[in-house]
Amino acid sequence: MNDGDESDLTVEEQDDRAADVSAGGNKSSERLARATVLLRQHTDIGWKAIEDNVIARALTLYRPSAPVRGHHEYGDFFLAADLLVAQLRSVIDAVPSAAARDITCVTDAQDHLESVTIQLIAAYGASLLEVANRIHAVAVRELRQLLGTLAPTAGQVHTHVHFGDVSDDPSVVN
């Protein structure tokens, strides 16, 4: 970029430059520029004092979990939705070329599982329909294992494929 050419600058950069020019380089504007740089580089003591505590408190936060009704040979039981989601996430993440982005459950007034929505991240180049089919199969199998006869059957679980993101980062998608 040419130093004097404004055509490549964003509106913000053009305004920043205009403000610098209009300040004119007198003593007062130099002080303001210096103070601005100082504030930019400054890390408040107040933040340093609480940083570790902020992280610790957030990570120990209790997140209430809705119940999901299951059924086994001794009768009905309840499973925490967080646990169901975590179990689904672990089996989905084991599927090659896919990772769970977000999993949400909807239950009815009697806590029966009505629907599960699974948002996926797929590896770049993967066949997305094949990935969706594999995820559908493992999700149905896991729900059956977790909820017994109250789990939705394969025919009741409908798959809608929506491409929300693509990543080539191996740390995100195995």
Partner: peptide, 16 residues
Amino acid sequence: RQAALGDKTAFSQLVS
């Protein structure tokens, strides 16, 4: 994304 997947280390890095 990682924090949304429950990764506490990723969330700690975001906070920092």
